[in-house]
Simulated scan of single mutants.
Amino acid sequence: MKISIRVNNDLPYDELLQLVSAAEAADVDQIWVSHDLLLRSAPVLMGALAARTERIHLGIGIMNPYTVHTTEIAMVAATAQEVSGGRFALGVSAGATDFLGWAGLERRRPMTTVRQSVTALRALLGHNDIAEDDLPDWWSSSSSLRFPPTSPVPVYIGATGPQMRRLAGRIADGALPLLPCPDLFGKISADIHSGLRDADRDSAAFDLPACIWVSVGERDAARRALAEKLAYYGQSFSPDHLAPAGLRPIDFHEAGRYARAGDLGKAVEFIDDRMMRLAVVGSPEEVIEGCLELRELGARHVSFGPPLGPDPLAALAKLGRSVIPALRSATP
Rank of each mutant, 00 (worst) to 15 (best):
Y232T: 14
H35K: 02
D14W: 05
G174I: 11
P136Y: 11
R300K: 14
A74V: 09
G104Y: 11
G161N: 13
P284G: 12
C211Q: 09
R122H: 09
E269D: 14
D202L: 12
F270S: 13
L45E: 14
Y233V: 09
L38W: 13
G290W: 04
I3C: 05
W138Y: 15
M111K: 03
V153K: 11
T160L: 13
A245L: 09
D311E: 12
V214N: 05
V280K: 00
M46L: 08
G158H: 02
E24I: 03
M276H: 10
P306I: 05
S84Q: 09
G217F: 03
G59P: 07
D272I: 03
R277P: 00
F88S: 08
A221P: 05
G265L: 01
M275T: 12
G217D: 08
F147L: 06
G126P: 06
D191A: 06
A77G: 07
I250L: 00
L90D: 04
A120M: 15
D202Y: 02
R224E: 15
A48D: 04
L105I: 15
S329Y: 00
V7N: 01
S238C: 08
P148M: 12
L145R: 05
P307H: 09
A23C: 03
R223Q: 15
G265F: 04
D183L: 02
L278V: 05
I130R: 02
L278E: 00
A299V: 14
L292S: 07
H127D: 07
Y232L: 15
S329R: 13
A159Q: 00
H301I: 14
T70Q: 00
P148G: 01
R6W: 12
F237A: 14
V7D: 07
K318E: 15
L90P: 10
L308I: 13
H69E: 05
A225K: 03
R108A: 15
I157L: 04
W102L: 15
S329V: 04
D220W: 06
A103V: 06
I73N: 08
S41Q: 11
L196C: 01
L178S: 11
H241Y: 09
D137C: 00
N128K: 14
P162L: 12
G85A: 10
G126T: 02
V302L: 12
T160C: 03
T53I: 06
G169E: 12
H301M: 03
R257H: 13
G265W: 01
R87S: 13
S93Q: 04
S283K: 10
D251R: 03
D137I: 11
L292A: 12
P209I: 13
E72S: 07
D202A: 13
K318W: 01
S4E: 02
I73S: 08
A267D: 06
R300Y: 04
L49T: 02
D134H: 04
D10L: 06
A89Y: 05
L145Y: 10
H253D: 13
P306F: 08
T79D: 11
D129I: 12
V114G: 04
E293T: 11
G59Y: 11
A225L: 04
G47D: 05
D173T: 05
